[in-house]
Design a protein around this nucleic acid. Structure first.
Length: 775
DNA sequence: GATTTTACGTA
DNA sequence: CGTACGTAAAATCT
C-alpha cells in the first residue's frame, strides 16, 4: 500500500514546486523530492539561488505508482484521461494552490505542466510564464523535471536559467499585462508611411522576419523596438492581398528599407537568400544575426528563436500561433528578434565573445552566395553510375539468394537481418558497444559486427557490400536537379555545437540534390562536373588538426617538422617530412627512410587515435587486429609521445577549473556534460577541430571579399575550399587563394602556420594533385 | 503522419 | 568508450 504524500512547506511561500509523483524514497519517508530526483532538485535550486525550505513542494500524483510509472494513473497511453484517484489529487492540488496563493508555481516536467495548464510538451513550453487553467490567474513557469535533468545532465543549465526566471517572478504576484503593440496588416499607405517616416528616417537597427512558401514571400515583419512591430501579409494563401500596382509599390519600399537600414535577423543566411532569390532584394547592411549571437554565447544550447527568447526575454509563448494567426505570429518573431539585440550584445561583451561573433557574422554573405549559386551535376553520369550500382546490387542479391536460399528478406531491415544471422544461421550474437556498463546489452547488425561474423560465415560480408551499395544509390545517386539543372545545399554557420565548422544540409529554398554536400562519397563525386573550359580547384589544409595538436601539446620535434616542410611541394614533403612516416619511425625506432608502408599505415592510425585518446577497441578495429595486439601498440605510442599525454592532462585540469576551453581564435565553449571520459574526449577534439573550422571559414571569407566578384567559391568541406574557375586562370588564382588561406596563428610563444595543397580536375571524383613548391 | 532508432557517408 | 555532422529506411509511437 503506497503512502499518501501531500504538499509540504511554509504556507506563506512565494514559490510552489510541483513534480510528478512520489518514488521509492518519498514513499518510505512520506516527503516529496527526497530521492535521487530530490538531490538533483537541491543542486538546481542552489544554483538558481532558491532556498528550498522557503518553497512549498508537492506532486501531482500523491501516491507512488507501481514501477514509478505515472501512466498507471491514466486510462489511455497518451496520458490525457486521468483515473479517478488522479483527478481527485489534481483537485487537491487546485485547493492547495488556491489556499497558499504562491506568487509562482514551478511545474517540474510534463505531467505537472499538463495538470496546471492543460498544455502538453514540456520542451516547447518550458521557460515561459503562463497562466494556470486549473487555478485561473495563477502564474506558472514550467521547466524540466529533475529526473530528466539527472538523466541528461546538459539540461541542468537550462533548468537553472528557468528557475532563476521563476525566482525573479516570485517577488510579485500575477502575470504582467503584455503592453506591446502589434500593427498587423496595415493599409498600403500606412505601411509605406512607416517605411518612409520611421524605418528610413530613424536608420537604426531593424529586426526583420519573413515567412515564405516554396515560391513566394507571403508575409514580412519588422520591429525597431521590443515594444512595437508591424507585420504585412503579401499573400493570403495563394491569393495576392493587394492589386499588382500596389504590391509593386510595397516591394519598392521594402527593398529601399532592406538595402539601406542596419538589419537584424534570426538566421540571416536564410532570410537574405530568400529575399534575393524571390525578389532580388539585396540586404546590404546586416547589423546582427541573433541566431549567430546566441551560438557564440551558448554554443552548447539550442538556437531557435523560441528557445533563445525563453532564456533571454520575459515574453509570452507565441510559436503555437503560426497556423491560426500568421500575422500575430510573424510580428512577434520580429519583435522578439528586436528585443534580443541588447541582451545578446551585453552577453557577448561580458563573455568576451565579440570577436567570435564578428567572425561568424562575416561568414553570412559568402555562405548565402554559395547556397544560392548551386552546383552542376551530370545527369548522364548519374544515370550511368546508378545503373552500374544497381547492377552490382542485383549481383549481390543473386549471391545472397544462392547462399541463403531466400529471397524474402529486406536487407535494409535490421530486424530481418538479426533474424537471419542470429536465428536462422545461428551465428553468435554481436552486441553494440555500450556508453556505460549500466545500459542493457543491445544486439546489433552494424558493420563492425558483420565484419566479425564474416570470419566464420560468407553471408555477412555480402550484407556489408549490399548496404554500402544501397546507401550509395539511395542517398547519393537517387537525386533530382532543379529546373535549371542544379543541386543546392544549405550552409549552416551555427550548425555545429562546438562552433567554427559549418554544417551542410538540404536547402528548404532549393530542395534539390542529396542535401548535405559534406559527406559525398568518392564513388558519387564523379557526377559533379564543370564545363570544358573550366576546372575545379581544390585547396586543402595539410594535416590541419595534427598541426594544431602538435602546437598545443608543445611537441617540439613535430612542430619543427611541420615548420621545415612548410612550402614544400607534396612530393618533397613525402620524402622525409611525412608525419605518418615520422610517427612510425619513432614507434619502431627505425630511420625515417626505412619505414615500411605497413608501418606508416599503423603510424597514421595511431596518430589519429592517439590525438583524441581513442581506446584499444577502436585501434583494433581500424587496423583489423585484436584488442590484445592493439593494447601494446597504443601503449608504445603514448610512451613515445609523452607530450600528448601531458596535453590531455592539461585539458582535464582546465576543465576542472572552469569547465571551459578556448580555441586559438578565442572561441569559448562550456562543457556541460557529466564529468567523465566522454566529456574529456569531446574536449580533446574541441580546440583542433574548431580552430581549423574558424581558420578555413575565415580564409573562405577573405577570398570571397577580395575576389568573390571574379572567381566562384564552389564547395566548403571543413578543411578544404573548392573553386570553379576558367582553366586559363588557374596559375593566377592559386597564389591568391593560398595567400588568403595561409594565416599566422599565435600559440603561446610560437606562430603556427598550416600549409595548403592544391588539386585540380574536370570533375570532383578525379582530382589530380598539383606538385607546387613555394620556396 | 510524426518521431525515434539504426546504419552509414564525409572531415 | 576518437570527435563532429546529415540523410534514408525501418521501427515505433500517436
Amino acid at each position: 500500500m503506497a503512502r499518501y504524500i501531500g504538499t509540504v512547506g511554509p504556507c506563506k511561500a512565494n514559490i510552489m514546486l510541483v513534480g510528478e509523483a512520489p518514488g521509492a524514497e518519498e514513499d518510505l519517508t512520506g516527503l516529496p523530492f527526497v530521492g535521487p530526483a530530490g538531490k538533483t532538485l537541491n543542486i538546481l535550486l542552489a544554483k538558481a539561488g532558491i532556498i528550498r525550505e522557503e518553497c512549498l513542494i508537492a506532486n501531482v500524483a500523491r501516491e507512488r505508482p507501481p514501477k514509478n510509472n505515472i501512466g498507471y494513473y491514466f486510462h489511455d497511453k497518451k496520458q490525457t484521461i486521468p483515473k479517478p484517484e488522479l483527478s481527485a489529487w489534481i483537485e487537491e492540488l487546485k485547493r492547495d494552490v488556491e489556499t497558499y496563493k504562491p506568487n509562482v508555481v514551478i511545474a517540474l516536467g510534463a505531467t505537472a505542466l499538463w495538470a496546471l495548464t492543460g498544455i502538453r510538451g514540456i520542451k516547447s513550453a518550458r521557460g515561459y510564464i503562463m497562466e494556470s487553467t486549473l487555478v485561473p490567474g495563477q502564474k506558472v513557469l514550467p521547466t524540466y523535471h529533475p529526473q530528466a535533468v539527472g538523466y541528461s545532465w546538459n539540461l541542468s543549465y537550462i533548468a537553472v536559467l528557468d528557475l532563476k526566471k521563476a525566482l525573479y517572478h516570485s517577488v510579485f504576484p500575477g502575470i504582467r499585462k503584455d503592453s506591446r503593440t502589434f500593427d498587423i496588416d496595415p493599409s498600403k499607405d500606412a505601411f509605406i508611411d512607416i517605411c518612409k517616416n520611421v524605418f528610413l528616417k530613424e536608420n537604426k537597427p531593424l529586426a526583420v522576419d519573413i515567412e515564405a512558401t516554396k515560391a513566394h514571400i507571403n508575409r514580412i515583419g519588422f520591429s525597431n523596438s521590443p515594444y512595437w512591430g508591424v507585420s504585412l501579409g503579401i499573400l493570403d494563401g495563394s491569393y495576392p492581398r493587394f492589386p499588382e500596382r500596389d504590391e509593386l509599390e510595397i516591394w519598392y519600399w521594402i527593398a529601399k528599407v532592406l538595402s539601406s537600414v542596419p538589419l537584424v535577423f534570426h538566421n540571416a543566411t536564410y532570410d537574405i537568400s530568400v529575399l534575393w532569390k524571390r525578389n532580388h532584394i539585396y540586404c546590404k547592411n546586416i547589423y546582427m544575426d541573433t541566431m549567430i549571437a546566441a551560438h557564440c554565447c551558448w554554443p552548447e544550447l539550442p538556437r531557435s528563436l523560441d528557445f533563445v527568447s525563453s532564456i533571454c526575454l520575459d515574453v509570452p509563448m507565441w510559436k503555437f500561433l503560426s497556423h491560426e494567426n500568421p500575422g500575430f505570429y510573424n510580428v512577434q518573431d520580429a519583435i522578439n528578434t528586436a528585443a534580443l539585440i541588447e541582451p545578446l550584445k551585453d552577453r557577448l561583451k561580458a563573455h568576451h565573445e565579440e570577436e567570435t561573433f564578428k567572425r561568424e557574422m562575416s561568414w553570412i554573405k559568402p555562405a548565402a552566395m554559395m547556397q544560392l549559386q548551386g552546383i552542376d551535376v551530370s545527369l548522364e553520369k548519374r544515370d550511368k553510375i546508378r545503373k552500374d550500382a544497381e547492377k552490382r546490387l542485383k549481383e549481390i542479391d543473386a549471391k545472397l539468394l544462392s547462399l541463403t536460399g531466400r529471397n524474402d528478406i529486406n536487407y535494409n531491415s535490421p530486424d530481418q537481418i538479426k533474424k537471419l544471422l542470429y536465428i536462422d544461421l545461428g551465428l553468435p550474437l554481436q552486441f553494440k558497444r555500450r556508453k556505460s556498463v549500466k545500459e542493457d546489452r543491445k544486439i546489433t547488425t552494424e558493420e563492425k559486427a558483420l565484419k566479425n561474423l564474416a570470419r566464420i560465415h560468407e553471408v555477412p560480408a555480402y550484407i556489408i557490400k549490399r548496404r554500402k551499395c544501397q546507401k550509395l544509390i539511395s542517398t547519393f545517386l537517387d537525386i533530382e536537379t532543379s529546373p535549371e539543372g542544379k543541386i543546392y545545399t544549405s550552409y549552416n554557420i551555427t550548425g555545429t555545437d562546438l562552433g567554427g565548422r559549418w554544417s551542410s544540409s538540404k536547402s528548404i529554398i532549393d530542395p534539390y540534390g542529396p542535401g548535405n554536400l559534406q559527406n559525398i562519397p568518392k564513388a558519387a563525386r564523379k557526377l559533379y562536373i564543370v564545363s570544358n573550359n573550366e576546372v575545379l580547384l581544390e585547396a586543402d589544409y595539410v594535416q590541419a588538426e595534427a598541426v594544431v595538436v602538435a602546437y598545443l601539446s608543445l611537441d617540439m620535434a613535430l612542430m619543427k617538422m611541420f615548420q621545415e616542410s612548410f612550402g614544400m611541394s607534396p612530393s618533397e614533403r613525402k620524402k622525409n617530412h611525412d608525419v605518418h612516416r615520422y610517427t612510425a619511425s619513432i614507434m619502431y625506432e627505425v630511420d625515417i627512410d626505412d619505414v615500411t608502408s605497413e608501418q606508416r599505415s599503423i603510424g597514421k592510425t595511431l596518430r589519429h587515435a592517439g590525438n583524441y585518446a581513442a581506446g584499444p577497441g577502436v585501434v583494433a578495429d581500424k587496423l583489423n587486429i585484436t584488442m590484445q595486439q592493439a593494447k601494446p601498440l597504443l601503449k608504445r605510442y603514448f610512451d613515445k609521445n609523452p607530450m600528448l599525454v601531458l596535453w590531455h592532462k592539461r585539458i582535464q585540469e582546465e576543465l576542472r577549473r572552469s569547465r571551459s576551453l578556448t580555441n586559438l581564435f578565442g572561441r569559448s565553449h562550456l562543457f556541460l556534460d557529466r564529468w567523465g571520459e566522454a566529456l574529456f574526449r569531446r574536449a580533446y577534439s574541441y580546440i583542433p577541430q574548431t580552430t581549423v573550422g574558424d581558420l578555413l571559414n575565415s580564409s573562405l571569407r577573405d577570398f570571397y571579399e577580395r575576389y568573390g566578384d571574379r572567381y566562384k567559391i564552389y564547395l566548403q568541406l571543413h578543411d578544404a575550399i573548392y573553386l570553379r574557375i576558367p582553366k586559363k586562370e588557374v596559375d593566377t588564382v592559386i597564389p591568391l587563394l593560398r595567400d588568403c588561406m595561409i594565416k599566422e596563428i599565435p600559440v603561446g610563444q610560437e606562430i603556427m602556420k598550416i600549409d595548403v595543397d592544391f588539386k585540380m580536375g574536370s570533375n570532383w571524383g578525379e582530382m589530380e594533385e598539383l606538385d607546387i613548391s613555394w620556396r
